[in-house]
C-alpha cells in the first residue's frame, strides 16, 4: 500500500513538472527571452518581408553581454519575426575553445581582444572582428557600503573582504592594469573566474567590494552600489564580435552582425552601461 502511494506521489510530481514546464511558460513570460513567433507583440510588428533575415542564429557571447544581447534579441525578433536567436553565454576563452572545437555557431562575441585573437589565429573567424563596445571597471559595494569604500585604494585594505577577477581572465587582466596604473596592491579574498561570480559575492553581502565591469554593475541595479574609479576610462577593454567561418546561417548571421555593430546595437549596449566603441 505504502509503496504504491509513494510511487503515485512521484508520478504525480513528475507529471506536474512536465505540465508546468510546457504549459506554464505563456503565463508569466516577462523579461525572459521571448519565443520568436509566439509573442503577441510580433503580430503587431511589421510583417515579414522575403529579404528579411530568418531562421536560427546561434551566438556565443561573453557572460558580461548577457542582459544587453538578450535585449538586442528581443528587438531583433520584433523587427524580423522569422529570426530565431539562441545564445550561449560563458567566459570568453571557453567560448573560443568551443568555436575552435567546431561548435555549430554563427557569431562569436568576446570580452577582450586577446581571446578574439586566439579565434582569429585558429582560422574559425570569417573576415575582421569588429569592436562593438568598450567596458570599463567600477567598484561595486553592497547597499549601505558596510566597508566604507570610497576609491581604489580601499581595495588594498586587508580588513575588507574583496572579490576580484582571476588575472588570467579578461576582467582580471583589466583589473591588474588598473591597479598598476594607480599603484595599488590589491588584497583579494577570492579570485573569480567570471565577473558575475565576483559581483554575486557583493550582492549577497559576503564581500565588501568587488571590481567589476560597469555593464555588470549596471545590470545588478539596486543590489549593488556603484563607485566610479578615477581614470578608469584609460583602462578599458574592447568587446569584439565576429562572424564565424562555418556559420550555418550565414545570411541571417550577417544581418545580425550588422545590427550589433549598427545604431540599434550601440543604443542597447549604451543603455546597458557599456561605452561606445
Amino acid at each position: 500500500m505504502r509503496g504504491t502511494r509513494s510511487l503515485l506521489a512521484l508520478v504525480g510530481m513528475f507529471v506536474t513538472l512536465v505540465l508546468w514546464s510546457w504549459l506554464g511558460a505563456g503565463t508569466s513570460d516577462d523579461g525572459v527571452r521571448p519565443r520568436p513567433g509566439t509573442s503577441a507583440d510580433s503580430e503587431t510588428a511589421s510583417g515579414s518581408a522575403p529579404d528579411d533575415p530568418a531562421g536560427p542564429v546561434t551566438v556565443l557571447a561573453a557572460a558580461s553581454l548577457t542582459e544587453s544581447f538578450e535585449e538586442l534579441a528581443t528587438e531583433l525578433t520584433q523587427k524580423y519575426p522569422d529570426l530565431e536567436i539562441a545564445f550561449s553565454f560563458g567566459p570568453s576563452s571557453g567560448l573560443v575553445e568551443q568555436a575552435l572545437s567546431g561548435a555549430r555557431a554563427d557569431i562569436l562575441a568576446t570580452a577582450n581582444r586577446p581571446t578574439m585573437d586566439v579565434a582569429v589565429r585558429g582560422g574559425v573567424v570569417d573576415g575582421q572582428a569588429a569592436v562593438v563596445a568598450r567596458n570599463t571597471l567600477v567598484i561595486v559595494v553592497p547597499p549601505g557600503n558596510p566597508g566604507d569604500v570610497t576609491g581604489l585604494t580601499d581595495l588594498g585594505r586587508e580588513d575588507l573582504r574583496i572579490a576580484l577577477c582571476e588575472p588570467q581572465v579578461p576582467c582580471g587582466s583589466a583589473s591588474e592594469a588598473l591597479f598598476a596604473h594607480h599603484d595599488v596592491q590589491p588584497a583579494a579574498d577570492t579570485l573569480a573566474t567570471d565577473v558575475k561570480e565576483a559581483l554575486a559575492f557583493v550582492t549577497l553581502g559576503e564581500a565588501d567590494a568587488a571590481l567589476v565591469y560597469r555593464s555588470d554593475a549596471w545590470a545588478a541595479g539596486d543590489a549593488a552600489h556603484m563607485i566610479q574609479v578615477d581614470g578608469a576610462r584609460e583602462v578599458t577593454n574592447e568587446y569584439l564580435a565576429a562572424l564565424l567561418a562555418d556559420a550555418p546561417n550565414r545570411r541571417a548571421a550577417t544581418a545580425v552582425m550588422e545590427e550589433i555593430t549598427g545604431e540599434l546595437g550601440r543604443t542597447v549596449l549604451e543603455d546597458a552601461g557599456f561605452l561606445e566603441p
Partner: peptide, 25 residues
C-alpha cells in the same frame, strides 16, 4: 560558499575551472 583564492580556498577542481576559464586547457 568559499570563493576561489590560491592557497586558501582554490582546491583542485576550482583550479581546473580557473584553468578552463583562462584558456589554459
Amino acid at each position: 560558499f568559499a570563493g576561489s583564492f590560491p592557497g586558501t580556498t582554490r582546491t583542485l577542481p576550482l583550479e581546473a575551472y580557473v584553468a578552463i576559464g583562462a584558456g589554459d586547457i
